[in-house]
Design a protein around this nucleic acid. Structure first.
Lengths: 164, 164
DNA sequence: TTGGTTGCAAACATTTTGCACCGGA
DNA sequence: TCCGGTGCAAAATGTTTGCAACCAA
């Protein structure tokens, strides 16, 4: 039904996958091929480290600006593959479109605080949450793939003029 | 940018809103009107208590089966209003479409454990998480609207034949 | 009576897919 | 060489919107 996938089998961190050799090996292992496009996309995530939630549209645009002509459909297909390989994680941050980020291990999960007014996104981690996640899934016999906690609110800036 | 909204001003539980009188008052208070369609939709959420995550499409279909002819656009518009009034909460459970459920107070938030294979959804509550939510938002000066934690995994049933 | 509400169809936005050609292993 | 990947355009989904008729307050 979708593309969530387990951790890297060998525990390799997603960040390392920008290394072409490692990336190639990981792709080939599953019958996929290393292509310029896939490499460029993954590299983009590293470059945009500061603002690392990217939508397919943004990726397409950024690469275009960098002179890389890559079609939208290829972006989508590449994202699916990278998610399936466990290199990227899909986020449900905003309305109507999906965002992606380099996937971090389950025990390093971080969460998002979204301002519904201006769209600002802040991240936070919390050990208690990580533990709850592990415990709940275990209690119910689920095999944990990943979890995402998204809190919606109004940021300090938007509170004054808020409420409609 | 979207329709998240604060708690019922008077603390009335969303469940009570199926009462036509209360619903009417709540709607009117904000300049909205009580219509058969809105009533039917809200009632549907009560009926489907056991499986109370409904998408616009499902709502439209269920009502159709019950002989209520209501257009899709009306369903969408009604959902927006009900969310804005704080009676329903929007969920980001699955791919590409939104789900809705009767909204529970922030201090009674519950979360979702989704099987990515069969789509089964289980709920759980956890005080620690509620507290983390409150704390994080406070630390950053955010006004909390609501939060949703969605954990993806494989349910016991789907684990054997899983992995592709 | 007034102005919010509805249904319908057309418009939108995002994502997926069919197909011929291209290119990695 | 073989088969997966790409680009393009068309199609599929999910959601929104313009407009005339309608109805709650």
């Amino acid at each position: 039904m979708d593309m969530h996938q387990v951790e890297q089998p060998d525990g390799t961190a997603a960040q390392d996958m920008i290394n072409p050799g490692l990336l190639k090996a990981t792709l080939n292992r599953e019958g996929f091929r290393l292509t310029v496009q896939r490499q460029k996309i993954l590299t983009l995530f590293k470059e945009k480290a500061s603002r690392h939630h990217l939508s397919a549209e943004e990726i397409h645009q950024y690469l275009g600006e960098q002179g890389e002509k890559i079609s939208v459909s290829t972006v989508y297909r590449a994202l699916h593959v990278l998610v399936k390989l466990g290199l990227l994680q899909e986020l449900e941050l905003a309305e109507g479109r999906k965002y992606y980020e380099l996937k971090s291990p389950v025990w390093q999960q971080h969460h998002h605080l979204v301002c519904v007014q201006c769209g600002d996104v802040q991240e936070f981690e919390d050990d208690a949450m990580t533990e709850v996640t592990a415990q709940e899934t275990q209690n119910r016999g689920f095999a944990l793939l990943n979890g995402q906690f998204t809190v919606y609110g109004l940021c300090p800036h938007c509170q004054p003029q808020a409420n409609g």
